[in-house]
Design a binder for these strands. Structure first.
Lengths: 243, 243
DNA sequence: CGCGGTATTGACGTTCTTCAACACTAGTGG
DNA sequence: CCACTAGTGTTGAAGAACGTCAATACCGCG
């Protein structure tokens, strides 16, 4: 029902944290999975809703938001291809974030029960998921720092650095130029600013020859300078042992 | 070497997420542990340092900060009695946060290797640690929301609500009045504000009969009103199944 | 007593937001 | 082909929220 590619994607991701044995790969192979697609702007999961399926993103871009939609929105995480979606919901039964698709998205989905059994039966997979969650927490803490203590310009710069880094990790683009079809509003909601201010900041980035945004594609022209200004240190993203 | 109380504390905490069997409790009982004490203001672990021991806080109060000390500080988490300290460091080998003791602290510490074996051998304990980490991530995301999209007054109010809730959960005070010996500076670093602004906000809280801070003890006089104003919903704190 | 850490006050700046208006694009349906 | 809309990005001016600076008060401690 679904390309075998998926299995590769999951095991590659998990193997980034822990070395899986054939028994683990076998268990992953046997995990029943389905393909689900969501259109751009669709809501994939709702915070507070009970959760019966979990997913891994195959193609597209999504984000997780906190707070009631259309009221006071804060984007708290981005989901890139290869990332797990709503592991919180899968293991606790109720989703913690509202996940929204930025572009059209393809997910491979799994029943939470099957995932739970996997965790109980395969210690190495459990551990890999634990590492994955530790990284999520580390990213969230870095975002607290970003939004809490950095200037507007630094926040946007830092977010650009993270997105570039993760895009490269996900195998999209070369890390200099990549697809990042976020609206100014979405950048604003991720950095705790207004779209107006973000717009001005990107203009200056362009003037300064740091970042160019041309429609959906974003280019980091001077990564070292941008990273230095943003106080960006990729340590928090490199959680696995095998990296 | 250490009161048996510790075992109870750990198992109680983990059992909040998953029902442990006698085999799991036995494994916890056999885990070699030591008591370590740190004075107020001491640095328990440093971000970026290799980590060979992990801990659970028995008594006292600590916090985790991001960013270089004395430069641009952001507090990203608080550690209350019963909380695990630096699980990230324990499982990845390098600490992600700098943990500082607010008051004198007593920790029960474990070698990371022993903890790793526990994760590999006891699926239920692994799962409980996974839940614990999921909660940490959920709290961090809520903090992103707090610092990114709420007014200064709401941020402080929200933090007060969280600390009150967790103090009660940890069995300290009745949730209305409890020990919270944080300096104005520390409140500021946790909310992304300046100590000056925080000071003014607490004054108004007192005027409005919401919160009173008298030295190390904090009293929530009107929890409902405070929670409503802060947009506080304790869902993100209630992660375990057995709560 | 003097000293360092912490809290507070008031005056002053700046960053960032809010508001209202306008340009651009892509769909619509006539 | 042309309105008509809706979504998005940009502009300028006014204003609020919050930060910075300098000075003072408080308190425990040697």
């Amino acid at each position: 029902m679904l390309e075998d590619d998926v299995l590769e994607r999951v095991s590659h991701r998990l193997a980034g944290h822990v070395s899986l044995e054939t028994r683990d790969r076998q268990a992953l192979r046997n995990l029943p999975r389905e393909l689900e697609e969501y259109g751009a702007g669709a809501c994939v999961t709702s915070a507070g809703a009970t959760c019966d399926r979990t997913a891994i993103l195959l193609e597209g871009l999504a984000f997780g938001q906190i707070g009631s939609p259309h009221k006071l929105r804060q984007i708290a995480s981005f989901v890139l291809p290869g990332d797990l979606v709503d592991l919180h919901g899968a293991l606790t039964g109720v989703s913690a974030q509202t996940i929204m698709a930025v572009t059209d998205c393809k997910f491979a989905t799994f029943a939470v029960g099957a995932l739970g059994r996997l965790v109980d039966d395969c210690p190495r997979i459990a551990r890999a998921l634990l590492m994955e969650t530790l990284r999520e927490a580390a990213v969230a803490r870095e975002w607290v720092m970003n939004v809490g203590r950095r200037t507007a310009r630094q926040r946007v710069a830092h977010l650009c650095c993270e997105l570039a880094w993760r895009s490269r990790e996900a195998g999209l683009g070369d890390g200099e130029s990549f697809q990042m079809p976020l609206s100014t509003d979405q950048f604003a909601d991720a950095t705790g600013l207004t779209r107006l201010h973000v717009s001005q900041i990107f203009q200056r980035f362009e003037d300064d020859g740091l970042v160019v945004r041309d429609g959906p594609t974003m280019s980091i022209l001077h990564a070292a300078k941008l990273g230095a200004e943003a106080d960006f240190d990729d340590l928090y993203l490199r959680v696995g042992a095998n990296r």
